[in-house]
Amino acid sequence: MTPLAAYLFLAALLFAVGLGGALARRNAIIVLIGIELMLNAANLNFIAFWRYGPNPEPLTGILFVLFSIGIAAAEAAVGLAIIMAVYRHYRTSNVDRITSLKG
């Protein structure tokens, strides 16, 4: 296995772990943690391709990941604020009990 394939494989495994946690757990905070893991797997892919792929412009991969980290930080802040607002309203962070919009 080449180094690039090994890093891509690691990122795919990390993505699958995050997706499984986000889909299977009940607590909203754990769902958010799973989403963070998936975003990190995407960042690892970017860096692996930057390091081992063809590079017409040597800085594109790095800057892409820096902007991606910034967006992920904004997403985490807003997501946790929404979880706190939902917790205040329903007195629970269990996503199965938040059923007001369920048909």
């Binding site: 795919a12 495994l13 993505f15 699958a16 772990v17 997706l19 499984g20 986000a22 889909l23 299977a24 757990r25 009940r26 607590n27 996503v95 199965d96």
Partner: peptide, 19 residues
């Protein structure tokens, strides 16, 4: 109470399929 949601087997299955 249980930490897994009722349809957790589906979630884990979808994740495994993705991987």
């Amino acid at each position: 109470e249980c930490i897994l949601s009722p349809g957790w087997l589906w979630g884990v299955g979808i994740a495994a399929l993705t991987f």
